[in-house]
Amino acid sequence: MLRSLWGDFVGLIFPRLCLACREPLMTGENHLCTGCRAELPYTDFHLLPPEQNPIGRRFWGKLPVRHTLSYLRFVRHGRVQNLLHELKYQGQRDVGTALGQLYGAELRTAGLAADFDLIVPVPLHPRKQAKRGYNQAAAFANGLAEGLQLSSNATALRRTTHTSTQTQKNRAQRWENVATVFEVENPTEPARSAHSRG
């Protein structure tokens, strides 16, 4: 009881803010307010047939992929950009974990969990990870694996080259920038033997 009252008192002086809209969070809300949870621009691509999935169509005739998924639409100066900024540049790795948990739970509810063996985040180069302090993709992957009730392995892939930032590049330049910089760390390791990293 006292702990709850103290938390409410501290919240009046130093309110916790929603990382998407910057409004104060209510008791029981973490990272995202209920309004943003309801109004974020979800893609729902996992609910579409393959021929209607705009990301999937980009791979037609290029790579054999079974699923092409995206959780949120990026809107410049919008809530998703705020979340990405907090995740990548403000040390808020919990944002990635929370979003991953939410999306993983949605995918599991849609019956997709059985289609995946392992969640593998794209690694940062050690120099960039040391500067940032963590890999934001790994934070999302951990949450995604938890929501899907699967394993994740942040060491399955290794980045072999430090690349320049992707921020100002177009799609073709982004692909060229990372086309040959990853390799599987241990190709003979069975996927299901990897363990979840929380």
Rank of each mutant, 00 (worst) to 15 (best):
Q166E: 07
A156P: 04
F116A: 04
A114F: 00
F140D: 04
A145K: 06
L102A: 13
P121Q: 00
K131Q: 15
K131W: 12
K131I: 09
Y103P: 03
A156H: 15
L118S: 13
G100M: 01
L150A: 12
A145F: 09
L102W: 13
F140T: 08
L118E: 13
T155C: 11
P123F: 01
L112V: 05
A130S: 13
L99W: 02
L144N: 13
I119E: 03
L99N: 02
A110H: 12
N135Y: 12
H125V: 10
D117I: 03
L124V: 09
A110K: 01
L148D: 07
A105N: 06
A154V: 06
A114H: 13
L144Q: 13
E146K: 13
A130V: 05
N170P: 00
V122S: 13
Q166D: 07
V120Y: 07
T163K: 07
G133N: 12
E106P: 00
Q166I: 07
L102G: 04
H162K: 06
D117T: 11
L107G: 10
R158E: 13
A141W: 11
N142C: 15
V120D: 06
K128M: 05
Q166C: 07
T165G: 09
F116M: 05
E106L: 14
K128D: 11
T160H: 00
S164L: 10
S151L: 05
Q166H: 02
T167G: 02
A130E: 11
L150S: 10
F116Q: 06
L150D: 07
T167N: 02
L118M: 10
N135E: 10
A98W: 10
L150Y: 10
L118N: 11
A145R: 05
N170K: 02
Q149F: 06
L107I: 02
S152G: 06
T160A: 01
L150W: 11
T160L: 15
A137C: 15
A114Y: 01
A105F: 01
N170D: 15
G133T: 12
T165P: 01
S151C: 14
A154C: 08
G104N: 03
T167M: 01
A154Y: 01
Q168I: 00
L124F: 08
G104V: 01
T109G: 08
Y103W: 15
G111P: 03
S152H: 08
R127F: 07
H162M: 11
A156T: 13
A137W: 06
H125N: 09
V122P: 09
L102N: 04
R159A: 10
S151G: 11
T163Q: 09
Q166G: 06
G111E: 07
T155N: 13
D117Y: 09
H162L: 14
T165I: 01
A98S: 11
